[in-house]
Design a protein around this nucleic acid. Structure first.
Lengths: 204, 204
DNA sequence: CGTGAGTTTGACCAGTTGGTCAAATCCAGC
DNA sequence: GCTGGATTTGACCAACTGGTCAAACTCACG
């Protein structure tokens, strides 16, 4: 294992290469379904070399998760309590949808893990995600109390945004197969915009 | 392998026991993550005995899938083209939500498979599900054309129903962790009812 | 250059896993 | 209660998989 003080040029490059390959393989097959050999081949390195940079397969996985969790939660962090409520939410929905389009592997990585009970992620989720959700739920509730958006259960509202947007990444094969030649991401933005506008616009 | 003509009492019972155990294990760990030994233990039978009833792990999996696919698609089949449009859709949403509550293992079994590219399911999906979706999309479109429900993309509408309802089963751990002591299924029915009523009720 | 730390890998190992097989056991129908 | 097919299993195997290790190689730096 390389020394941890001031990583060399090679260390930086190889760690990044390995994590990129790990994302590709883990997201496609899940933790158990992925093999270190697959990741090594994908990375263009030898298996012992991977294990020189990461002490175990498990370590690659958790390194990957913690590297990506921040990126994954950023769109929610950007919700601005001072902004125009309906527009803030609609913008959040679009950011999440963009992520499903641009980072589908990341989405599937998390999906794979959570569907199987999130054995290697529960701790991170029950701190970072939990706190963030509580914070933003409070914002949503204040908007509802102020009559800026329709009254609903704030957490279920957030779940619905996650479900609807991530569905396009996580179930990509199914969605594409059912839509034929039409690209799902052509109509999805407008669909979701309409959906949440109707849901949240207060009755005047 | 048992003869396939007129299964004996024992054959019926053991096949059912094995498939139940297989559902438990496959839904929790995915195809690759499940082991025949785990399924055998879960079923209370020996590993060679499982392989006496099913020629391979793969065969157990596909047998399970094809046994469950019909059940899985039933709620959609029940949408009645002659019924009151909005109520038909709302009832469908509730049926799907019920399935997430009552059959979460089945939901996760399919989720696991589809997230990983549905390598063992694409054929079934691209016939049964595809045809059914086309049929019901046409019904939705006729309802929209008649002004009974708001105009939207029918397929995206169906995707949204699947995403929102299955989310409660597939991401169960996450949802429950974030909701604390509150049961997600307490508020979900009303939340989804409101959601789709606002989305679909035509502007008068 | 030379040298020592940093990097890479072929060979190997132990544990797991899907699957086989011959022998043993069970059971329905005569 | 006998018998032949149905059922069950302990022992085993080959392939795979995560991980180790000593030896070889590379490279920054004096």
């Amino acid at each position: 294992m390389p020394k941890d003080r001031s990583p060399t040029r090679i260390q930086k490059k190889n760690r990044a290469t390995i994590l990129e390959a790990a994302l590709e393989v883990f997201s496609a097959h899940g933790f158990r379904g992925a093999t270190v050999d697959q990741i090594a081949t994908q990375a263009g390195l030898s298996k012992p070399n991977l294990l020189y940079y990461f002490p175990s397969k498990e370590a690659m996985f958790t390194a990957l998760l913690s590297e990506l969790l921040d990126t994954w939660l950023d769109p929610m962090r950007e919700i601005n309590p001072e902004g125009e409520p309906l527009e803030e939410i609609l913008a959040y929905v679009q950011r999440k949808l963009q992520m499903s389009r641009d980072l589908p592997r990341e989405s599937r990585l998390f999906a794979n893990e959570i569907v199987q009970g999130a054995p290697r992620m529960l701790e991170a989720l029950s701190t970072d995600l939990r706190d963030l959700l509580e914070e933003k739920s409070a914002v949503l509730e204040s908007w509802m109390a102020a009559g800026k958006i329709n009254q609903t259960h704030p957490k279920h509202l957030m779940f619905s945004i996650w479900a609807l947007t991530q569905h396009y990444a996580d179930f990509d094969v199914q969605v594409r197969m059912l839509m034929g030649t039409e690209d799902p991401f052509d109509a999805a933005p407008e669909f979701l915009e309409t959906f949440y506008r109707r849901m949240l616009t207060p009755k005047s």
